[in-house]
Design a protein around this nucleic acid. Structure first.
Lengths: 212, 212
DNA sequence: CCTTTATGCGAGTATGGCTCATGTTAACGG
DNA sequence: CCGTTAACATGAGCCATACTCGCATAAAGG
């Protein structure tokens, strides 16, 4: 997959610049939302000339996608970390852990409330060609990546061989989780507790068909 | 709730014009996606001067929201219709029916694949004020309206009194359904059959906690 | 028929995404 | 140390798009 960046920053200063731009992008997203976000303002706040901005990011969406990717990596990082720390007995604990971590990031990570892992844009850059049929794997959807990673973690945890349905089930579970949690945060900026609980329930019930 | 329209079309011609604009908006969404959609082009195709366009729609988002609302009404219309026709015995039949109808609209209604009931835009017009806490009812989310309507239908069907948890459960179910079906159509323009089946399963398992 | 009020209209304005010609620094050879 | 060349940095400006505003036209009212 071609990197989301036009040019990968090589020197120290460039790396910091890109990081700063992503930081400011995140803050601005919280302040004004996606539509009102302007590349000029991001560049201005990050103290990077607009021309340089476009050396690294293909366009406005590219910026947001890059942020989403950073979020994704941070999330996976945290989850694997916490799994290593608190050893869990049952797969439901993993569900809880992942959801709790997601919720925590919604609360603390700037911009995460607006973009989390991406897919903010309806069909970025026009809809897929008519008749195109993707496989689940090739659907370059960040939630699929999350599902993939969680599957690996789940399997490692209870070293039971996966049924072929498990892949699909996990993608479905992640997608549903994402949606319900978004709702929980739309209703309450801190995340409606009842809805979060309900989300866990939803996933547990569903996955019980595929896991012991 | 203030109408999505700036001015409600009074005369016949105006009504037709608004309808035409929504039609063209839907077609264009399928062709180029949300970001590339321009108000000028919508106006041009609908043969309506741009000034008149803005008499009816507050802005580009207003146009899309109006379309989403029309979709919502069409959906509820169809569902109630079909419930009346084929009398169903169990609440799971209702789940199937609603999902099938949604899928059908995804396939046949122009623009429905891109916007369905709305909420396409991440926090339209900036994020909610910090500290704002909405109730579920006041969350002006179209999916909540769907949930509300479906609850009424469900109750009528099996005239069992609703537990207080049912409201929330249905909202959660609708939200999750929406997300999984969107995935199903991202993977396959005609809607991945397996994912659609999986979606039904997800909802059935979950709602089984709240319905007999 | 005139006045008043609503509606129709599109040239024009403001603004934002993005480019590209020019300036600046680094890399390297002799 | 200088000259040459390539890579990178910069921001004025281009173009497209969302949206307005003042005038034109039609309808309503008396």
């Amino acid at each position: 997959m071609t990197s989301t960046l036009r040019r990968r920053p090589a020197q120290r200063r460039s790396v910091e610049r890109v990081e700063r731009m992503l930081d400011e992008c995140a803050l601005l997203l919280d302040e004004v939302g996606y539509e009102a976000l302007t590349t000029k303002e991001v560049a201005r706040r990050a103290e990077v000339p607009i021309g340089t901005f476009y050396q690294f990011f293909r366009d406005k969406q590219g910026l947001v996608r890059a942020l989403a990717l950073r979020n994704l990596e941070a999330f996976l990082q945290r989850v694997t970390q916490r799994i290593a720390e608190a050893d869990l007995g049952h797969w439901t604990d993993l569900v809880d852990l992942a959801i709790d971590e997601f919720v925590d990031m919604k609360r603390t990570t700037p911009g995460f409330g607006v973009v989390d892992f991406g897919e903010v844009l309806p069909t970025p850059g026009g809809p897929p060609l008519e008749g195109t049929k993707r496989t689940l794997d090739s659907a370059l959807d960040n939630n699929v990546i999350v599902a993939d990673r969680l599957r690996a973690l789940t399997l490692a945890l209870l070293h039971a061989p996966a049924g072929p349905g498990l892949d699909r089930a996990l993608v479905v579970a992640v997608e549903a989780t994402d949606a319900v949690l978004k709702l929980a945060f739309r209703v309450d900026p801190d995340g409606d507790a009842d809805l979060i609980a309900e989300c866990k329930q939803l996933v547990r019930r569903y996955l019980a068909d595929h896991l012991p």
